[in-house]
Computed example of a mutant assay.
Amino acid sequence: MLTEEDYAKVAKEALIQYPIMCEKLVYIGKSDNVTFRVHTNDDNQKFLIKIHISTSSNKSKDNIESELIWLEALAGDTDLTVPAPVRNLKGDLVTDISTDHSNNKFIVTIHHWVNGEVLYREPTSSETANLALLMAALHKHSMQWNAPDGFNRPVYNSDHLFSSLNQLKQLVNLKIIPSEAFVHVEESAHKIANLIQSFERSQSNWGIIHSDLHESNYVFYEDIPRPIDFSNCGYGFYLFDMAETFLHLSFENRKIFIASYSKVNQLQENYYELLEAFFIWSIIRNFAFHSLNPNEQQSLAESFPSVIQDYFIKYLNGENFLLN
């Protein structure tokens, strides 16, 4: 098992291949990636280095490169502050690293550091309005941008929905959540899938989305939100992107978000029905993700009954729940 010091050696080996003079490396953390902040002799110029260690099929080299292609386009085409990638001395977005101290091969990427503060709380009404404008700007770019050949990112469709459902069902098999409650989840998933399949995709409702814009994946700088993690970006409905963010907003802030977003991008007539369906889908996705961690399974089981009552049963009964 590699240590923090081992990963630091990988980072330093990678930095040789970039036009960056590193003064200091600061370890940030480890998840799907091991991350360091790169300090230079200019306090205003910092970088984020990622050592990609996930073995997920969504983390292949071409998949990672595609994420950076969109980030590079966003940085070049918009006024948004995003973690724009840095190309290495060969002009590549992704760098392969092999080191003497390890038999492992690593994929490394470097991004411009995005200054700002994580909220660690519910955003205020004005912050929520600005967050909606950020999402609207991302969607506006997506509507107008043509991905290059070979662009490879996840697709958030009914297959993805059922993949999450099957993952979550493992908690039933482990007798962590009751099968009689899970029936409501299965029925909801099938209802959502039918809606997805009848929902005609168009340039105005489907494209590249962030898909994970919550309080850990954006920072605020002088009251302006900046997205900082695009690792789950992929093809999906713009309303699904919004529903994911709604998981982390109060009823009132959801209303503010819709009003602010609508000033930039017009919502379709049946947007509310779709938002509620995609909100349920987002719950399934998030529960499935956290179910992979044995340390979180018990807390999921404890929250499951109220989530079924407050959301799934209401959704199946046609009761509105998203804004009240």
Rank of each mutant, 00 (worst) to 15 (best):
M1E: 07
A8C: 05
K9C: 01
Y18I: 11
P19D: 11
M21S: 09
E23P: 02
E23I: 03
K24A: 00
V34M: 11
F36R: 06
N41A: 06
D42I: 12
T55W: 09
S57Q: 14
I64D: 01
L71A: 06
E72N: 14
D77I: 14
T78R: 12
V86F: 05
D96V: 09
S98T: 11
S98P: 04
I110L: 12
V114G: 03
V114Q: 09
E122S: 08
E127N: 09
T128A: 05
N130F: 07
L131C: 01
A136K: 14
D149H: 11
F151Q: 06
R153G: 00
Y156S: 01
N173G: 10
H184L: 08
L195M: 12
I196V: 04
S198V: 07
H210G: 01
S211Y: 12
H214G: 02
H214K: 14
E215C: 06
L239V: 10
A243D: 07
F246H: 04
I256D: 02
I258H: 07
K263C: 02
N270D: 15
E273L: 10
L275V: 02
A277L: 07
F279R: 05
A288E: 09
H290V: 06
Q298W: 13
S299D: 13
A301R: 10
S306L: 12
D310L: 11
L323S: 02
